[in-house]
Design a protein around this nucleic acid. Structure first.
Length: 529
RNA sequence: GGCGCCGUGGCCAAGUGGUAAGGCAGAGGACUGCAAAUCCUUUAUCCCCGGUUCGAAUCCGGGCGGCGCCUCCA
């Protein structure tokens, strides 16, 4: 099976067929950087990250661009109120956004163009549309796109062109438009724009670019006239993306986007997130409140992108549990393998490469509908190759095709997570006494899957950030202290002095350290993180 | 009003014709000095009614309930 995605325009699942699998071009609508991004934004952005990771894992080479909107009504108003100029206001939030993205283990995209850096390209685009008579200059020097020049307007959102036309009173501040549905490509300079530097010269007059225009111009500048994939939140379908199509195809004459993917919105505690309800939760607030980034990432990524996701305390608690289980599993594998994840990958390239093929006899079809525990020799072509593999490796070879099949089915993360946890469940009991090389196979496969999910990455990123904040020396000191306590406790236990042993465990517990006594000694982990 | 989505065990959530993946939480058990971790066992008339079919959570009709977009909010 090959990758299939749900295209908004065709309203159905379609095979993903990029023009060139070696150069897949993806554009995603990013945030307006006038404040800290909220968790709803990040539901969408973490999905972008998933697309980015999944496509590369599946073997595509990807160029992925996400814009940052730094000139619009909101940035201008905020900069004015703060008495600064546009970059003075937006730049800190650009950095804030990237920090938040890092915290969630989002992999960096190839470019984050800012609108203000591409105004020339936007002016050029408007000029082209004027030349082609698809746009007109209004009395005040604003430029509008002429809807009637693009008969296909409305095809993405599936709305009736005539709807809302009759009996519509032309609003006072839009008297320059020929048709109420025409949208602004260029807005003539308004009072206050100059103060913050939000005004540029154009042949038809001074002003600033319209919102839809930014994305058309920047995607063309970065990726060319047509894209394989364009991503955005569901609210952008109309009018934003509809406008992008009209402008882009109007100017170039060629198809703008192959497949549109739109992410459903996030709700908070069963309510829509909105300013009026006062429940605009920023990611920063959530994290500073003590929530772990890995749990947040899990929560945001674990629900299919076309299903509404409701963020709440219960769900986050569930995510914490799920992530903790994976982290412990990774630790057990590392111990049993005696190597790092990187070394494990070298030992088992077939299990750790991007999108390991089902070439070991366990085809996707064969894996589906079999129960996870049956390492059968009766599967087509499965017996012989499996002969030399240990039980952990066999489980990995079972899990990876399922994981892949789920991703290929419109990025079914729930299915992918199920494949992962079936793997965890089947490996855990076989880990005691497993051959190191075999355990390494499990470690390699686990990290391969995490290259798509990013959950272990988010957990270890948080861990590192924590110790970096503490400072290297203090961290060393702390470790030494913990290990000394553990040594003392081991002595106490050998002497069967249970009271002393328990007291030491309690003391460590208060310091946030949890102990696990295993056959190979005592392991400790930090609570959370 | 127009267009569209959804309703699966305590919570979250896969599954779109052949008698229900997975996670979290709970209960019992194994293991442990006690724990923790791990494993085993255990919890579903798939919103309701009717229809199509040998067979439906899955298709069709109706109902009830929840939600989104329809002014630059991801």
């Amino acid at each position: 099976m090959a990758l299939r995605l749900h295209d908004t325009e065709r309203r159905t699942l379609v095979p993903f067929e990029p023009d060139d699998p070696e150069d897949v071009r993806i554009y995603a609508c990013g945030p307006t950087i006038y404040g800290h991004a909220h968790v709803g934004n990040f539901r969408t952005f973490v999905f972008y990250d998933l697309v980015h990771r999944a496509l590369e894992w599946l073997g595509y080479r990807v160029r992925f661009v996400m814009n940052l909107t730094d000139v619009d009504d909101k940035t201008i108003r905020a900069a004015r109120e703060a008495g600064t100029d546009l970059p003075g206001w937006t730049e800190p939030f650009r950095e804030s956004f990237l920090r938040d993205a890092d915290a969630l283990a989002m992999r960096r995209f190839d470019a984050y163009p800012k609108a203000t850096a591409h105004v020339d390209a936007m002016i050029e685009l408007v000029a082209t549309l004027l030349e082609r008579e698809m746009a007109y200059v209004a009395e005040d020097g604003s430029v509008y796109f002429d809807i009637s020049a693009f008969p296909e307007y409305g095809r993405l959102s599936g709305r009736d062109l005539e709807e809302g036309r009759q009996g519509e009173r032309v609003l006072a501040d839009e008297h320059d438009k020929n048709d109420v549905r025409d949208f602004a490509l260029w807005k003539a300079t308004a009072p206050g724009d100059e103060e913050v530097g939000a005004a540029w010269d154009a042949p038809w007059g001074r002003g600033r670019p319209g919102w839809h225009l930014e994305c058309s111009a920047m995607s063309m500048a970065e990726l060319g006239p047509s894209l394989d994939l364009h991503l955005g939140g569901e609210d952008l379908i109309f009018p934003h993306h509809e406008g992008e199509i009209a402008q882009s195809e109007g100017a170039t004459g060629c198809r703008f986007v192959g497949t549109w993917l739109h992410v459903k919105h996030l709700r908070i505690q069963d309510r829509k997130m909105s300013k009026s309800l006062g429940n605009m939760l920023t990611l920063r607030e959530l994290l500073e409140g003590g929530e772990s980034a890995a749990a947040v990432r899990h929560q945001l990524v674990s629900t299919h992108y076309r299903t509404e996701l409701n963020l709440g305390a219960e769900g986050l608690a569930g995510s914490r549990g799920a992530v903790a289980r994976l982290v412990r599993f990774a630790l057990r594998l590392e111990e049993a393998a005696g190597v790092t994840a990187g070394e494990a990958a070298e030992l088992h390239p077939a299990l750790s490469g991007d999108a390991p093929e089902a070439g070991w006899g366990g085809s996707v079809e064969a894996a589906e509908g079999q129960d996870a525990g049956s390492l059968d020799a009766d599967r087509p072509g499965g017996g012989q190759e499996l002969g030399g593999a240990g039980p952990v490796e066999a489980a990995a070879r079972e899990a990876l095709p399922r994981f892949r099949a789920a991703l290929e089915d419109d990025l079914n993360v729930s299915g992918a997570l199920a494949a992962l946890f079936v793997f965890v469940k089947s490996v855990n009991p076989r880990l005691d006494g497993a051959a190191p090389r075999d355990a390494a196979a499990g470690l390699a496969a686990l990290h391969s899957m995490d290259r798509v999910l990013g959950l272990l990455e988010a957990a270890s990123a948080a861990q590192e950030e924590g110790s970096a904040a503490d400072g290297r020396e203090r961290e060393e000191e702390f470790r030494a202290w913990v290990e000394e306590r553990i040594r003392q406790r081991t002595e106490a236990r050998e002497a069967r002095d249970w009271a002393r042993a328990d007291a030491l465990r309690d003391e460590l517990g208060e310091a946030g350290v949890e102990l696990e006594d295993g056959p190979s000694g005592t392991r400790w982990t930090r609570r959370d993180g």
